[in-house]
Amino acid sequence: MKNRPYIITIAITLFFALTFTASASDKCRIAWSHYTGWEPYAYMQESGLMAKWAKKHNVEVEITLVNDYIESINQYTAGAFDGVTATTMDGLAIPAVGGVDTTVLIVGDYSNGNDGILIKGKPGEKLGVKNLKGRKVMLVELSVSHYLLARALAKNSMSERDLTVVNTSDADIGALFATASPGAAAVTWNPILMAARNEPDAQLVFDSSEIPGEIVDTLMVRTDMPEGCKRAIVGAWDETMSIMSGRGQATDDAIEMMAKFAGATTAEFKAQLQTTFMYYNRADAEALIKSPEFKKTMDEVRKFSFDHGLFGQGAPSADFVGIEYPDGSVAGDKNNVKLRFR
C-alpha cells in the first residue's frame, strides 16, 4: 500500500516519457478526422498506398482516425501524434499558439460551399444575411462556422452584436435546425449542411464559395518530423490525387471507397466534392499559399482568432505568434514562428 503513490507517479512519468519519445524514431503517426477533403487519407491507409511510399522512403507512417476533430488536434498538440488534419485557423489557434512548431505539409483543399449559413423562413419569404439581425444563430462557436459568420457579417456591414450566437454541438445542430420553427438560423458544414438545406423553407443565405481560398483544409505536421516521413506522405498524397482526378476503374473504386468511409452514398460524396475545391495538382496549392491574397486571408484569420480570445486570455496582440510564408516573410512575431507554409 505504501508504495502506491510511487507507482502512480512512475506510471504518469512513464506515460509522458513514452508520448514524448514517440516522435524520436522514424515512425510517424498521423491523426485524421472525417471531412470530405480528408477522406483521401483513409484511402491512402486502406489501399496500401501509404505503406508503399513509406517503404520507398524507409519509414513507417500510420494514419489513425480520431473520431472527434478538436480532440485529434488536441492530441497532436499534446504530443500523441506527429501530424494532424486541420484547417489553417485551428492549426494556428491550437498547436501554433500552444508552442508546437508546425509546418503545413499538404494544402489539400478549400471549402467552396461546404460551409454555409441557413435561415428558416416563412414560405415565399426572400432572406439574406441582413435577416440574421436579432436572431439566435446556432453554430459551433470558435470554429470555421463562426469565422464564416464573422466574414458574412463584415461583408454586410454588420457585427456579432447584431445577433446571439448559441454554441451548439455539431452532433445535434442538424436535428435542432430540422425541428426548429421558422426564424431559426444555423451555420454548419457538410454533410450536415446538405441535409439541413433540404429542410422545407430553409434558405442558404451565405456560403464559403463567397470567400474562396479562406477556409483551407490541410495536413500539418511537426516541423521536426523526419524528412523521410514528410516525403512519403506527400508522395502518397500526390498519387492519391492523381487517382482521384483521373478517369477509369481505379478512380471509381477510390471514390466509392472514400464515400464508404464518409458514410455516404457515392452520389452524395460526389456532391460534397463539388463544394470542396480539391487541389488535385500540387502546383495549384503552392500557388495559393504563395499568393498575396493568402497573406490577407491569414491576417483575417489572425484578427478573428485574436478578437475571439483564441490566442488565450493573456495574448497581448494578434502578432504574438509568427506565421512564415513560402517567400520567407513572417507575419507576427519573428522570434516565435510556430506555423510555417512551405
Binding site: V140, E141, S143, N167, G312
Partner: peptide, 10 residues
C-alpha cells in the same frame, strides 16, 4: 466546453 476548442487548460 468552449475553452476546450482551443485547449485553454489554463
Amino acid at each position: 466546453y468552449l475553452m476546450r476548442r482551443y485547449m485553454a487548460m489554463d
